[in-house]
Design a protein around this nucleic acid. Sequence first.
DNA 1: CCCTATTCTGGCACTGAATGCCATACAGCG
DNA 2: CGCTGTATGGCATTCAGTGCCAGAATAGGG
Lengths: 243, 243
Amino acid sequence: MVRERSGARGASVRVPTREVVLAAVRLFTEGGFETTTMDDIAAATGVSRRSLFRRFGSKEDILFAEHDELFASVSRHLEADSGEPLDVVFAAARLVLQGYLSDPEVTVPRYHLVRAHPRLRDREVAMTARYQAAFSRYLAAREGEGGPEERSLAAGVTAAALISAHNHVLRSWLRHPGQETREVWTRYDSAMEFVRRAAGPMLHPADDPVRDRVMVAVYPADLGREELLRRLSAAVDGAVPRH
Amino acid sequence: MVRERSGARGASVRVPTREVVLAAVRLFTEGGFETTTMDDIAAATGVSRRSLFRRFGSKEDILFAEHDELFASVSRHLEADSGEPLDVVFAAARLVLQGYLSDPEVTVPRYHLVRAHPRLRDREVAMTARYQAAFSRYLAAREGEGGPEERSLAAGVTAAALISAHNHVLRSWLRHPGQETREVWTRYDSAMEFVRRAAGPMLHPADDPVRDRVMVAVYPADLGREELLRRLSAAVDGAVPRH
DNA sequence: CCCTATTCTGGCACTGAATGCCATACAGCG
DNA sequence: CGCTGTATGGCATTCAGTGCCAGAATAGGG
C-alpha cells in the first residue's frame, strides 16, 4: 500500500514521531488507554503496527517518547558541566520545567492519563527518578565534603529535595495549565530558594554561617543551671553538624 | 486433578502466597524474569496459572506481593498517629527498613532482579514513591507553618529527603547483605539525624535555634566598613529564613 | 451426617502487546 | 541504471492478562 503521507510532505520516509504522539494522546484521551489498541494508532497515523513497535518499543513509550528526548537534553546539560555544581543542577531542573511548560499539548493530557492509570503513573514516577538519579550522581561526584559515604548521602538527599520541589510546582501547573507562565516561574524560583537554603548546609556544613561566626548566647540570669545547660546544648546541637 | 499439597498440610485451600513468591524468586533468578512464564510458576507451585493471576494480578506483582503488605502495615502505623508528626514518620520509615532487613530471602534477590530489568526497576521506584506520597500527605496535614502551599512544599521536600536517606542506607545493605545488622542501623540512625537537622528548620523556621537566641557576632576590628557589612548581611541572610 | 449456599479453584477460549522473520520499498552512491 | 544498506510492513508466534463457566472445597444450618 502506498502511503499518502509520503507524498504530502517532503521525503520523510521515517515514522513521524510527533504526529504519532499527538494522535496517540488524542486516542487515549478520547477512548481510554487500555481500550485503544496499537492497531487503532496504526490506522489513525497510517504507520504500520510493526513500525510503531519498532520506533517506540511499547504502547506506553509512545506517550513518553518526547520526555525521553527531554531527559537526553538535560543529561547533555549536565555533561557540559559549566559552573558551580549546585547551580548546574538547578539550571538542569529548570530545563525540565521548561520542557513541560513549552509542550502543554502533550504534557497536560498526559498528566491526566497518568493520574487515571496506575501503570502510567509508575512510568511517570520512574522518569522522575531518572532525573533524581542523574542529579544525585552529578552532585556526588562534584559536591559535598567528607568521605564518599556522606557525600553521596548529602547528594542524594539534595537531589531528592530538588526534584520534589520541582514536581510540586510542576503539578500545580499541570492541574491548572491556564495560569500565567510568569506566575509559575515565580513560584518555582521561590521553591528553589527554599531548597537552596536547605541544601547548602547539607553539602557544605563548614559554610554554615552559624559555624563561621563567634557567637555569644545571652539568657536571662534567673534561668538556673539545669535549664541554662539544656538550652545551650540544644542550641549547639542544632547549629553545629556532628560529623 | 487432586492437589497433593492439600493433603500434605492442613486444610488451606488458599493459594500459598509465601511459597509462590519464593518459587517465583527462585525461577526468576535462575532462568531470568522474561523467560520465566506464568506456566512455569504454575508448574513449580502446583497452583494453576489462572489462580496465580487471580491472587497476584500480574507476573510482576508476585515479586512485590509482600512489599504491598509492608506498605499496608506502614500505612496503619501512620493512621495510628501517636506522637509528634515528624517522629511518627521517622518511625514509619524505620518500619520499612525493618521489613526489608527481616526478609532477605526475598528482598535481596529481588533487588538484583530489579537492577537488571528496567520494568521491575520502575515498579520498585513506584513503591518508593508511594511511601513518599504517604509521608508527604501525613506531614502536610499535621506539620509545618504558613499557608497550605508552603506547608505542602515543606512536607513534600521533607518526605523526599527522608525517603532518599532511607533508600541510601537500604541500598548499601542490599548490595552487601552479609554485613552486621547492628552496623546498618547505626548508619541508618546517623542518616536520619542528618535529615532531621535539615527538615526541622524547613517545617518550623521559627524553632531554628539561630532565631531563638540573642547573638553577638565578633569580627576583627580592622575589617573595614564594607567587609564588615557584607559579612553581617550574609550571616543574617543565612541564619534567618525569609518568610 | 447430609444438604445447601457461598466461595475458591482450574480449565478453556480469547484479546492484544510484543517480537522474530522475511520480503519489499526506499535512499544514497557510483 | 544497478547496487547496497536501511527502513518498512505483513505474517506468524509467544505469552500476559481477562472473562466465562463448571467443578471442588468450605461453612453453616438442619
